[in-house]
Design a protein around this nucleic acid. Sequence first.
DNA 1: GTCTATAATGAGATAGAC
DNA 2: GTCTATCTCATTATAGAC
Lengths: 189, 189
Amino acid sequence: MNATQTLLLDLGEAAMMQRGFDGFSYADIARDAGIRKASIHYHFPTKQDLGLAVLNRYSHNLLDRLAEIRQSTRTGGQALATLIEMYRRGACNGGLLCLCAALSGDAHAIDENMRSALKRINDLVVQSLEDILIIGRKDRSISVGGEPKAEATSILATLQGAQLLARAADDVGAFDEATAMLRTRIFRA
Amino acid sequence: MNATQTLLLDLGEAAMMQRGFDGFSYADIARDAGIRKASIHYHFPTKQDLGLAVLNRYSHNLLDRLAEIRQSTRTGGQALATLIEMYRRGACNGGLLCLCAALSGDAHAIDENMRSALKRINDLVVQSLEDILIIGRKDRSISVGGEPKAEATSILATLQGAQLLARAADDVGAFDEATAMLRTRIFRA
DNA sequence: GTCTATAATGAGATAGAC
DNA sequence: GTCTATCTCATTATAGAC
């Protein structure tokens, strides 16, 4: 994975989060990368190849990031607050959606490989949220009322939906309002 | 608004909910309507004209539907359950997104008129949810812990996010899991 | 690895006959 | 109102020179 490929992945990822999979073209990426679009095909023969590579790297980085959050926080509540902040940062930066929310809206436009990668990433985040909830329940830093798995799924839905609302309103305030309830369930420990 | 225009709005609305604004073309609609794409331009000169007309009708119908829900239910809890079921039906029908969720993902592709219509519809649903929560709190059919406005926004985010997750997983079960917590807050009254 | 050049296709949109 | 025909442009993708 050389510098050009990394740059293309960076630009592709940003474009997908901003405009979805069928909202960007090789011409866009080429302009930003300072090369011709034919050159992109050398690295990623088809657009789906690029999309899948972006998803795989995203998944890998996300795993690292989730592990890092768990290591750098003392309580489940702190971990959850950090995760919420992570999703908020996207909504802040010009209404970016997390890659999963962006691609779920474009499910019709992506192939089977990308779709299964998308599924795996959602599952991975739900699993991580579930772990955080279980820890938070034990250390009394999060109020957990129901089944951790269902609560984790609900939290992910709320975070992705909050990004949609923030983008529609063109205002991060909508993200904050949609996640306010979530934050009240976190106790300082 | 004649029969052809109504048909075009029906097909346009369905296409937007399935594939987003830049995921369908006049050619698609023309095929399904059994007319030529040039004929669509007679009724809706530009695609944004069609999109705006779809949004305006959607908004109008939604207002009716929300009023109907309030009239046909005895408690806030029943109203909320009916609203959840309304969003679930989309997720059931081949992973449809509500029009707002679909267009939020395509915010880059729609013009200022469509964007402000989108905002208004989200606000309208949040307002309606807030009313339902206040009623439900009074009649003790919904557990409302925080500010009704923030809770209403959170619920809308969860419903839209649950539709995204169901589509990504290609399984309505994901919608049900993401909204399970919500339903436990509704008491039979 | 990157380029120019060029398919091949499909998009949104318009003109003008019927 | 609907049609055929056409325009203009952007898209993904490939061939072949450098």
